[in-house]
Design a protein around this nucleic acid. Structure first.
Lengths: 249, 249
DNA sequence: CGAGGTGTTGAGTCATTTCAAGTAGAGTGG
DNA sequence: CCACTCTACTTGAAATGACTCAACACCTCG
């Protein structure tokens, strides 16, 4: 993980060797950088999406809103994430994208992917694998929302956030957590009020400590047994990947 | 959609031209066929998964169960579906897989995909796109569970099922629906009791007609406005696909 | 210092669950 | 072919977890 390496390269390198060529292909996705302020709407659901985005800095979330205002937060995005893959096969974006903090994004056009698809089957496989990991995380949240009580849901989300951040940050002594309780609620099918009650009670019980946009989970292992949280970023099975980039051999 | 064409080829052909080579690559995935009876467990979460499966005939569902027995149904699988892509990057399967009807599956090993990845970037893109459509459907269900009332959730699921089946069946005058209410409930974060109440009331109001393992939604258009259901299988944007299979040119 | 956004806390309400009993239907064996 | 059994579904009554509404506290930022 050299200084010049992007978050994306850093994240992906955790799971598979990247060739020079692969790194070059990824670097092209991060050519441009755009900045956005806090609480800014990057795009809205229904708008046509020509670009995908690599998150360079900051937090964002994707959400969809029903006509009467009920909102569901679909995903929370951190540095190193690629935003927009689910929109790929659609003409217009599925969700709104909003910033939680000041953000730097690297937009790249959809069809930049075709070079990767043609030149590096192995990198393609890695991106696909990562996309499936995202989907696994989504399944876990589906289970949390569908079958867990408010308290379990909140714990589950906090553990999931921590697990994500651990790929690129040190989280042992706490980590930055700029999400508003209303956003957490909308991610979990709860109200901000319920989230507040749970968080307060968790803090009183000594499970965690809160600061301004900051959170410390004291004993994640203990907590994760209690709420049946599953680590999804631990290890990727890459055995089925093509052996080499066909183009580079 | 010729007689010899598989459900998978039929489904994918709806969205992009498949070359001879692509069809041959897909056909290889359906070489073997295995049969399973109703209510049979194909595999359990945690077992190692060497294979993916193409559904040739019948209905199945994937689910995960918490220690105390609470169950979440993650996905419902119909003919033409590929089962197991989300498990791909993991050593062991994420979910249980169970049959709802007698079923025929075509198992193929994970690394069969590498030929596709290397030989046909275009088919790879199509599979990826389809996988993203699945994810979009998952997002929709997340919203349903997180932010809709029981009645809306059930309507939403019924419309989603109908929309899936429409790819391969005629659903205008009703369709086969072998899911038990407990399964529907577990897919929606409800109890079988709530599902029963909703279904009964929908039938009384003339929204639908039920028969033995059979369902007719009278006016899906009207219903879908009422519950904000979004059709995801209508059209794929394939503009970003690589132009040709690199290997076949 | 004031203002607006964010989080907290309490009281009352409501949708869904839980529990329980009963009905209907499909499949099985005599 | 009928009785039996098991499972799925239905229906009602009571319990409950989360929501709504509302007031208030806190903090940040201008």
């Amino acid at each position: 993980m050299s200084d010049s390496a992007s978050c994306l390269v850093a994240k992906l390198s955790n799971f598979a060797e990247l060739t020079e060529e692969d790194q070059r292909l990824l670097a092209k996705l991060e050519k441009d950088t755009r900045s956005y302020p806090t609480n800014h709407s990057v795009f809205r659901g229904g708008e046509s999406v020509e670009h995908l985005y690599v998150v360079k800095r900051g937090w964002l979330f994707s959400s969809a809103t029903l006509e009467d205002g009920r909102r569901q937060v679909m995903a929370i995005h951190n540095p190193g994430d690629i935003i927009g893959l689910p929109h790929l096969p659609f003409r217009s974006s599925l969700h709104d994208l909003n910033t939680c903090t000041p953000v730097e994004l690297c937009p790249f056009p959809k069809d930049s992917l075709d070079t990767i698809l043609v030149r590096s089957p192995r990198l393609t496989a890695l991106l696909f694998a990562f996309s499936m990991v995202e989907q696994a995380v989504l399944f876990d949240r589906l289970q949390a929302i569908g079958r867990m009580r408010a308290r379990e849901r909140v714990c589950h989300l906090l553990l999931a956030l921590r697990s994500r951040l651990r790929l690129t940050n040190d989280v042992e002594k706490g980590f930055s957590m700029p999400l508003k309780q209303a956003v957490i609620g909308d991610a979990l099918g709860l109200t901000n009020v319920s989230v507040s009650r749970v968080m307060t009670s968790l803090e009183q019980e000594g499970v965690l400590t809160r600061g301004a946009s900051w959170l410390w989970i004291h004993s994640p292992d203990e907590l994760s047994e209690h709420v049946e949280f599953e680590e999804r970023f631990a290890h990727l099975d890459t055995s089925w990947f093509p052996k080499e980039s066909s183009a580079s051999t």
